[in-house]
Nucleic acid binder design. Structure first.
Length: 100
DNA sequence: AGTCTGACGGGAT
DNA sequence: TATCCCGCCAGAC
């Protein structure tokens, strides 16, 4: 799955500022439908100091997949807000911010 | 080989 | 809208 890992990195790296993509959507665009969970495991392996915009990846419900209240959860929302993305009660309007 | 664990998703209720 | 439940898939044991 090393090739897939690279494709996922590239896909995430290509998400424009101010927009987001879902795990499942990334898996599909990489040619691996059904690999949403794997996208998550790949992002989890990223080094803490990565430059990849991992915060632009949310789940199909338009929410952060980190436990509410956790450090990562707050960091992701903070980064999204910094990109002028509106977050209502932890929810992001995919109809507005999802990158196609 | 069997079981459990996730940064998941979708359908049923 | 909110749970709940089940299918999904690689990886760690």
């Amino acid at each position: 799955m090393d090739e897939l890992d690279k494709m996922i990195w590239q896909t995430v790296d290509a998400i424009p500022y101010g927009q987001v993509m879902t795990y499942g959507q990334i898996a599909i665009s990489c040619g691996y439908p059904g690999y949403a969970r794997y996208v998550g495991t790949v992002l989890k392996k990223l080094p803490p100091d990565t430059h990849l915009p991992w915060h632009r990846v949310v789940n199909a419900q338009g929410r952060s997949s980190f436990p509410e209240g956790s450090e990562k959860y707050r960091e992701q929302l903070q980064r999204l807000l910094a990109e002028n993305i509106v977050v209502n009660n932890g929810k992001i309007a995919l109809s507005v911010y999802q990158y196609q």
